Simulated assay, not measured.
Amino acid sequence: MAEDGADGIPLNCHSSHLRGFNIFLPTAYYLIFFSGFLGNLFVISVVGSKSRRSGRLVDTFIVNLALADLIFVLTLPLWAISASQDGQWNFGAAGNLLCKLSSYIIAVNRFSNIFFLTCMSVDRYLAVVKLMDSRYLRSSQCIRATCAAVWLISLVLGIPSLVYRGVEHSQDGLSCVENDNSPFFLVLSLTMVLLTFVFPVLIIGLCYGIIIMHLNKHCVTTANPRTEARRRHSLKMVLSIIVAFVVSWLPFNIFKAIMIGSLLSNAGLSCDNLAWQRNGLLISCCLAFLNSCVNPAIYFFLDHHFRRRAKILYKTCTGKPKLVQSHTSSASFTNMGTSESFGTGGRTQLQIFE
């Protein structure tokens, strides 16, 4: 598997996959690959088709998040082939390079994915709660610089995957695994669990908790039905993103922490317990990877602005430019303030994604 493979299983323990893993895992990886590739390509096409005037600041994070997921899913066919061969990594002379490179891409995606979600949460907090005090922080230049910093940090944090991962001989043949003999790497991996899950979840929860309280107070004050409807839409979007993030990554990080803790403590676990941890990590990795194809569905079904842009792109591709122009013009008047423009001079209404 992309994150741990057969790590942590001694040589005197026979590898014990659950029945049907060589069918279930490749099928899951190919489904995630196809849906993630098409879904994120669709998101990039829709968001990228927006003009500077009609685009939202948060779209910069969305397109970068989709790009990270798109690059990641391109590595899944390699792991699908390996899983169909019971975890063996038979890719010839280029096997070690492919092992390191694909593992590095997965690590970079893991970090950038979570950091972009966290940045989006902070951006939503600034847009809703600190609107008048965050004009510079929410400028297009500042957000682009933030995205560049996220990519740079993610690329650096992924370097240990290049150093401590490679093809090794095991009792089952060649496997792409991590070097679990290095205490430094194990401590670093445990630190990454805290850095890329616990802290981001705390930040996301804090930001959206304050946002929800602010929106509740705002709606009570205005007692406006349209504002109340927007609040419900915003809360639905917020809840969907948080649930998708936590459900996808929580099991993986739990199993990852358990395995690292067992290795660091030199606990004398039985072969059955080690195999249970390994199989649990394999399943939880599939769930974590599934997050890369869930986000496009969330945007399409819950983001009205994204759906409008998708319809405009469809009409443009089918040769209806006049209708598109008319729709865009009417939308600019009927939905003033509902989408955040890249300009800094206009007013921005209290919205989360609308």
Rank of each mutant, 00 (worst) to 15 (best):
R56S: 06
R56T: 13
S16K: 01
R309L: 07
N279F: 03
K322W: 03
S16R: 01
L131T: 13
L302R: 06
F342L: 06
S330K: 15
D172V: 09
V128K: 04
L31D: 09
I44S: 12
I114F: 00
W79A: 01
S248I: 12
G92A: 12
V177A: 11
G39Q: 01
M237K: 11
S121V: 05
V243H: 12
A94P: 08
R278I: 05
I159D: 02
I352F: 09
C99S: 08
M237Y: 10
F185Q: 07
C285M: 05
L131F: 00
F300R: 13
F61E: 06
G173T: 10
C13W: 01
I283V: 15
T196L: 14
F342I: 12
V220G: 06
I212F: 13
A148Q: 03
L65D: 14
L174Q: 02
L155V: 11
G319Y: 13
V187A: 10
L57Q: 13
Q351G: 00
L302K: 06
N253T: 08
L67Y: 00
A145S: 02
C147I: 15
V122S: 06
A148P: 00
L152W: 04
K320S: 08
N40G: 06
I81Q: 04
S49T: 07
F42Q: 02
Q349L: 04
V201R: 05
S139P: 11
V247R: 03
F184I: 14
I106Y: 00
K100G: 00
E168F: 09
F42M: 08
S121G: 14
L323N: 06
L202S: 13
T191Q: 12
K256E: 08
R347F: 09
V177P: 01
I260H: 07
L290Y: 08
F185R: 13
I153V: 11
G55I: 03
A28D: 01
V324W: 00
S182H: 12
N266M: 11
N216C: 03
P251A: 15
T60E: 04
S140Y: 12
S161D: 03
P10E: 07
T328G: 09
G205P: 01
V294A: 14
A223M: 11
L188T: 00
R19V: 14
G268L: 04
V167M: 14
A127F: 08
G36W: 07
N40E: 11
S161T: 05
T222Y: 14
L174N: 01
C119G: 15
D272N: 12
T334W: 05
D86H: 07
L186P: 14
G343P: 07
A2N: 08
K320C: 04
